[in-house]
Amino acid sequence: MKAYRFLTGPDDASFCHRVTAALNKGWALHGSPSLTFDEVTGKVVCGQAVVKDVPEKDYVPEMKLGEL
């Protein structure tokens, strides 16, 4: 199975730590990061897609992808 996640968060160190944690759990970057400005909060929001091959699992919609 190939799993896909799109991580989002504020443009700060916590977002970088979330992406780093995913990479250290076997996830790989997929495409370029994205940035947008949230006019309501006045903050920049980051996004980064990550993918992971999980050969021992079959996909089911109920699975928690963050726990793979």
Score class of each variant (00 low, 15 high):
Ser14Ala: 15
Ser14His: 13
Met1Trp: 07
Arg18Ile: 13
Ala22Phe: 04
Val50Ser: 05
Gly26Val: 02
Leu35Gln: 08
Lys2Phe: 06
Asp11Gln: 08
Pro61Ala: 10
Ala28Asn: 12
Ala21Trp: 12
Arg5Glu: 05
Arg18Pro: 00
Phe37Asn: 00
Ala3Ile: 07
Val40Asn: 13
Phe6Arg: 11
Ala13Asn: 12
Pro10Phe: 05
Val19Leu: 07
Pro33Lys: 00
Asp38Thr: 09
Val60Gln: 09
Asp38Leu: 09
Val44Ala: 13
Val45Thr: 09
Asp58Lys: 14
Val44Phe: 15
Met63Trp: 03
Leu35Trp: 03
Gly42Ser: 12
Thr41Lys: 10
Gly42Met: 09
Lys52Phe: 02
Tyr59Thr: 06
Pro10Gly: 12
Ser14Ile: 06
Tyr4Trp: 10
Val54Gly: 06
Asp12Phe: 04
Lys43Trp: 02
Lys64Ala: 02
Ala49Cys: 12
Ser34Cys: 13
Thr8Leu: 09
Gly42Thr: 12
Val54Trp: 12
Tyr4Ile: 09
Met63Ala: 01
Ser14Thr: 11
Asp12Trp: 04
Leu65Gln: 01
Asp58Ala: 15
Gly66Val: 00
Leu65Ser: 01
Pro10Asn: 15
Asp53Thr: 12
Pro61Arg: 08
Lys43Ile: 01
Glu62Lys: 09
Met1Ala: 15
Cys16Ile: 10
Gly26Asn: 05
Lys25Ile: 01
